[in-house]
Amino acid sequence: MRKSVSYFAKTGLLTRNPAAIQLLGLCFLLAASASLKDALTLGVCAVLVLVCSNVTLSLLRGLIPDSARVPAYLITAAGFVTVAELAVSAWLPSAGRSLGIYLPLMAVNSLFLARADAFASENGPAASALDGVFMGLGYALVLVITAFVRELLGAGRIFGFSVFGRAFTGVPFFALPAGAFVCLGFVIAAFRFVKRKTEERK
């Protein structure tokens, strides 16, 4: 069955959002959501890596046996993450320094493994590319929203600019890992609420 772009957009961004609904790659998301700028860079990298990995594995889907599928998916994702890391270090050095270990850590993000296994291994390259774009954007959306809330409440700043004036320097709790858990919990709840309301309207 041919699926429309709007189907991919709706499933990736909301109804089957990889982070908020499928709860994929949360460990990475919690660690990488301390700064909005880093979250944006990582979100873009996640989209690009997921598209490349999905398309490659879709093209190779007839050749990869069941017994070798997990190492094949992981190696493919790790290869593209390495490319992304080299590109960021070369052409976005300040972002590379700021991201530190988070970008290489993306290689073990369960998002890539899950989408390769659930979608790319059973669909053509065009559909897999669209799945990669919108699932990646859905993941990036949750990452960016969580980072936005944490930076705003944790430092009182957005992109380094003071939002509430100099008097408010933030609540340190939100900059800590515990704050990330709380923020992510509210973001997931909000996504699920919107999803339920959308389904009820039907």
Partner: peptide, 8 residues
Amino acid sequence: GIAVTAAI
């Protein structure tokens, strides 16, 4: 399976 993994 090993050959495919090695090729990838």
